[in-house]
Design a protein around this nucleic acid. Structure first.
Length: 428
RNA sequence: UCCGGGUUGGGGUAAUGGUCAUCCUUCAGCCUUGUGGAGGCUGAGACGCGGGUUCGAUUCUCGCACCCGGACCCA
């Protein structure tokens, strides 16, 4: 026996059918918004990730030297790839660019709940619009995708924040503050003891009193955002607050406002976010980590050598999404279903094969005996694959010009003339 | 990489330093080439890997692997 590679998973038909259903739902909603599916490589130059995120991240890549001597890595995320694609065809693509993609990614990191080394994400991005409605469309898409799965506003919330509010506030306290370090501290706020958290803010360059004041401002309610503007007295914070409010207003137009909560201590770890950021959380807290997140990253395309191009997106991770769905009781049933089982008794292969082909041509899921089994064993098998109807093609039936159609759930069965089947009694 | 808990047929389990390792379930076949979900019979299938202690280790011990949680990280 060979081992499965740690952090990589097998999906057997039952679980796979549930995953397929969820992925199909999430993608279908994206199609409705006009996001166009793209396909992307599993390998990129290792250098691309090192340039974007620093040499340290190479430690978390599946990377190797290919036979042509290229340093390559299995893609750990989609964003650099789509950024590369946008830059490459920038002039040719009509804006805004709206793309969707579902596929696996790989990271060499510690396996834990909702985190694997091979994981599946549906990425949805918009390039070329800095309008609040673009941010709102991403939020609304994510909300629609979740409700399509059967989740409701009681199950999840989007904690929405804005990078410039955090950055601007910090700047207003002390221009020399290490903003990124402070934001990372904010992102961990809930996980840390108050003392540790304050210490991190201190390390970032905030004085004790500033840290306290900063912390109080983070608790500002949605309706009191004006107070932030007043406290900071900077244009940056004023603009950020206005932008955030505009985005929230726009989500109302798209029917997603109720899912959004102001949460200034939501920062996202990523350094490349520039504007609105958000994370989806389980409202019951059973799923203890962010289900997924997204936000605006207006500088990335330029950083990849393209013309300045605003961007906003979200990445739905299947692992945490399935945890949320299971918690909420909306994870699809993990079973296989079959429309028809065509049962052969005696030498009826030819007729049975004809009926099987006929049903399949009509688009049904149909199985028939391919193991030479007895009547009883065939029925048992039909039962085990969840067949809704079994068509018994037996010598006795055929002698009378009939087949027997048996509904498995009730056990009811009736004789149908063989030349009228399936026309006369086809299941919808 | 670090911390904690685990590992006995496919799944769930019991016991044990020494004869055929328990039970439930599952799977296959049969009772039953004309009726599945019930029952009966037969069969398949396990001590994670390696070292140590021992006459003998599934049991004690050490290391590793893997699994489950968590930390770090989450680009």
């Amino acid at each position: 026996m060979y081992d499965r590679i740690k952090g990589f998973r097998d999906f057997y038909p039952g679980e796979m059918s549930a995953r397929r259903e969820v992925i199909d739902d999430v993608e279908e909603v994206a199609q409705r918004y006009g996001f166009r599916e793209i396909g992307t490589p599993a390998l990129e130059r290792t250098q691309m990730y090192a340039d974007k995120s620093g040499e340290e991240i190479v430690e978390e890549l599946y990377n190797f030297t290919d036979h042509g001597g290229r340093e390559v890595a299995m893609t750990p995320e989609l964003t650099p790839t789509v950024a590369r694609m946008v830059v490459e065809k920038q002039q040719a693509l009509s804006k805004p660019i709206k793309w969707v993609s579902s596929r696996p990614f790989w990271r060499y990191e510690a396996v834990q709940q909702g985190r694997f080394r091979e994981f599946y994400q549906t990425n949805v991005d918009i390039f070329g619009s800095s309008e609040p409605i673009a941010d709102a469309e991403i939020l609304a898409y994510a909300a629609d995708a979740l409700t399509e799965l059967g989740l409701t506003g009681d199950d999840f919330e989007f904690r929405v924040s804005h990078r410039d509010i955090l950055g601007g506030l910090l700047e207003s306290f002390d221009a020399d503050v290490d903003t990124e370090a402070a934001i990372r501290a904010v992102d961990k706020r809930d996980k840390l003891a108050v003392g540790e958290y304050r210490a991190l803010l201190g390390d970032a360059g905030l004085s004790e009193s500033d840290a306290e004041a900063f912390d109080e401002l983070l608790a500002t309610e949605e309706e009191n955002l004006d107070e932030l503007v007043a406290a900071a007295e900077t244009e940056r914070v004023e603009n950020a607050v206005e932008n955030l409010q505009n985005v929230l207003d726009a989500t109302a137009d798209l029917g997603a406002r109720d899912y959004c909560t102001l949460s200034l201590d939501t920062a996202r770890g990523l350094d490349y976010y520039t504007g609105v950021v958000f994370e989806c959380f389980d409202t019951t807290g059973t799923v203890g980590r962010a289900v997924f997140g997204g936000g605006r990253y207006d500088d990335l395309i330029e950083g990849f050598g393209g013309q300045p191009t605003p961007a906003v997106g979200v990445a739905l991770g299947m692992a945490t999404l399935s945890l949320l769905c299971e918690r909420a009781g909306v994870w699809p049933e993990e079973t296989t279903t079959t429309d028809y089982y065509v049962l052969q008794v005696g030498d009826t292969r030819e007729t049975a094969a004809g009926i099987t082909r006929d049903l399949r041509e009509r688009g049904h899921v149909v199985e028939t005996d391919i193991a030479g089994r007895s009547f009883g064993a065939q029925l048992e098998y039909a039962d085990s694959i969840g067949a809704e109807t079994t068509v018994i093609v037996g010598e006795q039936d055929l002698a009378g010009g009939n087949v027997t159609v048996k509904e498995m759930a009730s056990g009811d069965q009736r004789q149908v003339p063989v030349d009228e089947f399936p026309d006369a009694s086809e299941r919808k």
